[in-house]
Design a binder for these strands. Structure first.
Length: 220
DNA sequence: AGTAGGATAATCT
DNA sequence: GATTATCCTACTG
């Protein structure tokens, strides 16, 4: 039984249509949607669009199809999960028509259900920080590589994506994406949401301490 | 409050 | 062998 009749909510076919279209619109439209996994539900407050083959140097699918990014080349509505920095998992929603390989990175959200479970997965985090950042969000949902390539729009996989209460357009903010070289304003977030992650400009990590480099000073 | 550095391994050149 | 769509801790002021 729907209670709040006045609030239009995307139907499942509408959600699929949204994900099938241009990735920027898909990213925008995903704000306010919910992702559930492992007993935790997160309401998305911050996302980033990544175009696929060719157009976007920051996209994992920029150059060509590889085993890692293969899911991005498939149909929309599936999870693309990647491992980075040797430590973290991040969750994307595959968008666009098959072959285009665009995706939306889920950067942050508010835990709206399963709070106790989310806290147990991130014991040291405050409630605000439980899913504030892409790897934190993935951890809160209990995501690892087994979620890669699973469907998000039905209940056959470990994750489920559902439309939420629509976000008024004037509440949506845009800006450059985090941690990448390109400056396209393809980061979207909901204004005044405390769960939105802090912006961090791209900084190359050049300083590699080489094991073979001997230093002579061994005493002051 | 702000920043520097380390963790740690898959992926790609 | 270099890079990485990040996060946490420790240190400085």
């Amino acid at each position: 039984m729907g209670v709040d009749v006045g609030v239009p909510r995307l139907t499942m076919p509408d959600l699929l249509a949204l994900l099938s279209g241009p990735v920027a619109a898909a990213a925008r439209g995903l704000l306010g949607a919910t992702v559930s996994g492992g007993g935790v539900t997160v309401r998305l407050t911050e996302v980033e669009a990544y175009a696929g083959l060719g157009e976007d140097p920051s996209s994992h699918a920029h150059r060509r199809r590889t085993p890692r990014n293969a899911v991005m080349f498939g149909p929309p509505g599936f999870a693309y999960v990647y491992f980075t920095y040797g430590v973290h998992w991040c969750l994307n929603v595959v968008c666009g028509p098959p072959g285009q390989a665009s995706a939306v990175l889920l950067r942050a959200g508010e835990v709206v259900d399963g709070l106790e479970v989310a806290r147990s997965r991130r014991p040291k985090a405050t409630d605000r920080d439980l899913a504030r950042g892409p790897a934190r969000l993935a951890t809160a949902l209990g995501i690892d590589k087994t979620a890669d390539g699973t469907p998000l729009l039905d209940d056959t996989g470990p994750l489920h994506l559902a439309a939420g209460a629509p976000v008024p357009p004037d509440r949506i903010r845009t800006g450059p994406r985090v941690g990448v070289t390109t400056d396209t304003a393809w980061r979207y977030w909901i204004a005044d949401e405390p769960t939105v992650s802090a912006f961090r400009p791209y900084v190359p990590r050049n300083r590699v301490r080489r094991a073979g480099t001997r230093t002579q000073e061994s005493d002051p």
